[in-house]
Design a protein around this nucleic acid. Structure first.
Lengths: 118, 118
DNA sequence: TGAACATATGAACAGATGCTCATATACTAA
DNA sequence: TTAGTATATGAGCATCTGTTCATATGTTCA
């Protein structure tokens, strides 16, 4: 058991975040990023590893333009970043909270689906 | 924002969920529920405990009508449920994944805000 | 250079969304 | 019953969003 004296109670931190409008707004932004089917697929694919635009396009079954537009949005929100490799542009996650969120979201969804099917 | 890649070990369950369109769609629905400022505030408030509509209205600083419309949406998606208590209707979370998601979302937002302010 | 490939972007449009306003419903107390 | 309080809901509207289409930019190789 930790004996650190300068840590904050997790719940106290939680409460403090909720009172900060900017933080709450920022939180809604990451959920918004995950709320679209195409973007969710992009981010999920990137959980496994970096991918080029065309690889993402193939996995998400949408046009190259649609993928690029969504990647721009995700880049603007700081959730992914890109590096060029020859003709290709490789995207990667820049925030590992995304992975946790996707995991919890899928667990929720799987349970919801299981209850539905009973 | 960090430029390191955040990848995850291939996880069988995780991968299997991602291949199920219904599960992926359902996951985007819960993120969508959390993507709106008013709904996020409602769900955050309910993390602490059940609340009546008027209590929620006071905390979220929106009209009674707006709260009711959003509660309906959250009810329809199975994220909250209601019980009547006299004149009041008390709402509560029906899924504790929501609490985890809000917590991780806030942590992400707090870090993003911290980096921003550097 | 020029052709081929890969990615980005602006404009425009259809559909979705969240709010307000007015009103309906539900419950309580007199 | 009637008035008062609490909540729900339908319609309408302004705004936002995700896509498509056309085109621009960037890179490689002959």
């Amino acid at each position: 058991m930790s004996r650190e004296e300068h840590t904050v109670e997790p719940d106290a931190l939680f409460q403090r975040y909720l009172q900060n409008d900017d933080i709450v707004y920022e939180a809604t932004r990451i959920f918004d990023a995950l709320s679209d089917y195409t973007r969710f697929q992009i981010l999920s694919a990137l959980c496994v590893g970096s991918q080029s635009v065309s690889e993402l396009k193939d996995q998400c079954h949408v046009t190259q333009s649609a993928i690029s537009h969504q990647l721009r949005l995700l880049r603007d929100r700081g959730l992914v970043f890109a590096r060029r490799e020859g003709q290709r542009v490789i995207y990667a996650l820049s925030d590992d909270h995304v992975t946790t969120l996707i995991r919890v979201g899928l667990e929720h969804a799987a349970e919801a689906a299981a209850v539905e099917g009973e």
